[in-house]
Design a protein around this nucleic acid. Structure first.
Lengths: 133, 133
DNA sequence: CTGCATCCTCAGGGATACTG
DNA sequence: CAGTATCCCTGAGGATGCAG
């Protein structure tokens, strides 16, 4: 990585100081509470809406509304492909696009990293809490 | 990466379905709204509290409360080192630990990735919006 | 300067009911 | 089944004031 961080943070600036710069918004979609889980699960294979919901519910309860909303955001950002089959009853399959797969792999790696380093974090917490008392 | 995603998602489960598993919590701290910015900025060098706040404010206004809260969380997780010098007026320097640097580099890479792929995302959004209308 | 503590606002997110 | 629409509420997060 040749780019300095000072430059990165500067490129995050916006003329309007209140509005977020575009790529930060994408980052927030990808790292959002439900976005991360959707991406990680979809890395496996495509899922129907309720399959996906059941899978995520194993980890953390997600409301139908939030799942739909998350999927729409990721679909609009070009991360998720939505395949709605014109059958009765409806069948909709969600899968990752190439773009989404790139994002998902990085999110997954970060998740795996936190898992690997969990012991260190817990140690740090114990020390921190002990120092407080 | 040898580990299957099915296993990853399963390892994210908790006995108590409502509680989040430990490493997901760490992930959320690191990818939180202010956590990402703190990590990216600190990747440069250490900062005093108000320096850090000014730097982040360039990108997105952060309240003193949220910055302090974020720093405490990251410090407790062993990502950030807090060096409080016993002088008047107080001087506190924040820097990344080795653990924090590992996290920060991944977050920065993800941020750089979204920046690189921004054009693709914006194209996808335009297509999506056009299809709606 | 660096923080706590307090109060308050608002939007993220849940529950429910309804439709194609 | 796969959503949309509605209502509602908790809690993230901002503003202000004060202390060390």
């Amino acid at each position: 990585m040749e780019v300095s961080n000072a430059k990165l943070i500067d490129r995050m600036r916006t003329a309007d100081s209140d509005a977020m710069c575009p790529h930060r918004l994408v980052l927030e979609h990808v790292t959002s509470r439900w976005g991360t889980l959707v991406l990680i699960v979809l890395l496996d294979h495509s899922y129907r809406f309720s399959e996906l919901r059941r899978e995520i519910n194993k980890v953390s309860k997600v409301s139908e509304k939030m799942l739909a909303q998350t999927l729409q955001t990721l679909e609009r950002d070009g991360m998720v492909y939505r395949d709605a089959k014109p059958v009765i009853p409806p069948r909709v399959d969600y899968s990752l696009t190439d773009l989404g797969r790139e994002a998902a792999e990085q999110v997954r790696d970060l998740s795996l990293w936190t898992e690997r380093r969990l012991a260190a974090v817990q140690k740090a917490r114990a020390d921190y809490d002990a120092a407080k008392a």
